[in-house]
Each structure stands twice: as C-alpha cells, then as structure tokens.
Amino acid sequence: MSHTPSTPRLSLLGLSMPVAMGYIPLGAVYGFLFVQAGGAPLLALASSLIVYAGAAQYMAIPMLAGGVSLGALALATLIVNLRHVFYGLSLLHRRPPGGLGRWYMVFGLTDETYSVLTTLPADTPPGRLVLLTLLNQGWWVLGTLLGALLGQRAQLSLVGLDFALIALFTVLTVEQWRSRSSSLPLWWGLGAYGLGYLLAPDQALVIGIGLCVLGGLHAARGKAPEEAR
C-alpha cells in the first residue's frame, strides 16, 4: 500500500462524517431554539464557538433568556459537564499535540470527539487529532448558524421542542450505562433526586447531586483496596 497524500485527509473526513450527521442537525435545533428564545443569531454562534458543549448550551437557553445569575449558570455548567473530567483520563497516554493544538484539542473534547479519538490507533500523528477536533466543531458551528438563520424567519408555536435536551441527557445516560459494569449509579442518581424532591422540591437538584457525590465516595472507599490489588 502506498501512502498517497490524499489518503489521510480522506479518512479524516470519513472519521468525522458520523459526527457531522449528528452535529449539523442538533446544532441547527440549538440555533433555532436559541433564536426563538429571543437571542441574536450571532450570540448563538458565539456560544457554539466559545462554550462548545451541547448539553450545557441547550440547558443555558432558558437561563440566559431569564437572566439567571452567573454563579447559578457556572454551577449548572459544572454539573452537566462534570463527566468531561473523566474523559481526559483515558486519553493521557496518547502522544499529545504540542502547544496551542494541544489546548485546542482539550477545549474541543466533547462526547462525540472523545469517542472518535479513543477509536484511533495510539500512534496517530498529533496533528490529525487536532484537525479532527477542528472539523467536528466546524459541523457544530455550521449547524448552529443554519438553525439560527432559520429561527429568525420561522414563526413556530410548537410546545415541547426543548425536549431535545432531555433526549440528549437520556442518550448520554444510556451510553454511560452501557459502559458500566454495574447499574447501581443509575438507581443511586434517581433515588437521590427522588429523596431530594421529597425533602425540598426546589433544592432537589443540589441535594440529589450531594447524595451522588457521597454515594461515589462510598463506592470508592469500598473498591479502592481491591483496585490497588
């Protein structure tokens, strides 16, 4: 097999294609909802350029429209994106790109980009990791732009389009569940929120997350010696 110059670029697009199929439509729904909530299309674009985290971006639409405090927004982003802390851990032993490229790849480590990067062979040139990350964000930004422009023109009074966020959370739950050996965290999360809701419906989220952290720490204490062998 000869190495023609076009081979790497082609397969890079091929790798990115499944992500494009998801990012363009979902980015479009995001841009659409953002503009329908009263935001300018350029702000929707700015969001996809500087935040670049689908679930958090969807979640923030009503918060931005309602003028919630920066602290509440930061906390909500922290909660929704907490899983990303654990993504980098499994990419650590890769040959990292240098300089700015490295930090751009870290910036662009979304669920989808992460899952594509983990399927690449360990000796993949660092430059390609960065290029793939850039390509993926390009699809998301493109979708956002299309949706925002559409949302500016269309007058749609359908209730429930924002279910897309709940659906996204559900998809992420199923994928997390699939990769777990135990389903205990799932039931713990549901139970923790249920208990929080019974105690104080308005504080259920905070109470629930507190209980999840306690549950995780308890699991860590139980498993740590066995993990350490």
Binding site: R83, R180, P185, L190, Y193, C212, V213, G216
Partner: peptide, 21 residues
C-alpha cells in the same frame, strides 16, 4: 484510586439524575 472509581460512578448517576430533573 478513588478518582477512578468516582469516574465510573458519578457520570452515570448525575446523568440519570439530570434526566429525572
């Protein structure tokens, strides 16, 4: 080591909680 166990526990628990919330 606790971080690794937390990493397996928290994402699923919090995502299920967010679906419910």
């Amino acid at each position: 080591r606790a971080v690794a166990v937390l990493g397996r526990f928290l994402p699923l628990a919090i995502m299920a909680l967010l679906v419910l919330h």
